[in-house]
Computed example of a mutant assay.
Amino acid sequence: MQRICLFPGTFDPVTLGHTDIIDRALPLFDELVIGIGINSSKVPMFTVEQRVEWIREIYKHEPRIKVASYEGLTVNFCKEIKARFILRGIRYVSDFEYEKAIADINRKLEHEVETIFLTCSPEYSTIASTLVRDVIRYKGDAAQFLPDVVANSINLKPSI
């Protein structure tokens, strides 16, 4: 049986913190699906299409990584893509408390799906998409928090 894992999030934008978790999780699974959740109560800075394109470009040479967008319950999307695992990145203890509550609910809804937590590498622990969006919005140097593909596409770095 294939070990398929869903890494859900908004990825608005994709940061080096996200790619750190993805890169380190990849050896654990046969397939890693980056699931861009669409939340009708949030207004993203970047379109779903742009976020999908970034992830596809970043991982264009890694066939085990797929990307898709979805609406609704994450566990329902897991069933749809046959994922038995949900991956969540943890920066701080407070993240764990929040994520554990979600994992517990998901487990009650779908007992076959396990949540796996990976702590981010220390150099990325302060990177949060919310903060990066503020840096971008107010014309700060956000390129240091983003993969080159993302920084280049929003004109934060000159193209080489």
Rank of each mutant, 00 (worst) to 15 (best):
Asn76Lys: 02
Ser125Pro: 07
Val43Pro: 10
Leu32Gly: 09
Arg133Ala: 02
Ala143Thr: 04
Lys108Trp: 06
Glu71Tyr: 04
Met1Ser: 14
Ser159Thr: 12
Phe7Gln: 08
Asp141Cys: 01
Ser41Arg: 10
Ser94Asp: 15
Lys108Tyr: 11
Ile127Cys: 04
Phe145Gln: 09
Gln144His: 02
Pro27Trp: 10
Leu26Cys: 12
Asn152Tyr: 07
Arg3Tyr: 06
Val93Gln: 01
Asp30Leu: 08
Leu28Val: 13
Lys100Gly: 07
Gly89Asp: 04
Leu118Tyr: 05
Thr47Trp: 11
Glu49Gly: 11
Asn39Ile: 01
Ser41Leu: 09
Thr130Phe: 14
Arg3Phe: 03
Arg137Asn: 02
Ala83Asn: 08
Ile55Gln: 15
Pro8Gln: 14
His111Trp: 10
Gln144Phe: 00
Leu109Tyr: 10
Glu80Thr: 09
Cys5Met: 06
Val150Lys: 14
Met1Arg: 14
Asn152Lys: 13
Arg51Ser: 14
Pro27Glu: 10
Ser121His: 12
Glu112Thr: 15
Gln2Trp: 01
Asn106Asp: 03
Ile36Asn: 08
Val48Glu: 09
Lys79Pro: 03
Val14Ala: 11
Val52Ile: 15
Trp54Cys: 06
Ala25Cys: 09
Tyr59Val: 12
Arg133His: 06
Gln144Tyr: 01
Phe145Leu: 05
Ser125His: 14
Arg51Met: 15
Gly9Asp: 08
Glu80Val: 04
Lys60Arg: 15
Ala143Trp: 00
Arg24Phe: 02
Ile81Ala: 05
Glu49Ala: 11
Ile116Arg: 05
Val135Arg: 07
Ser129Pro: 08
Glu112Lys: 08
His61Lys: 14
Asp148Gly: 01
Asn155Pro: 03
Ile90Asn: 05
Phe7Ile: 06
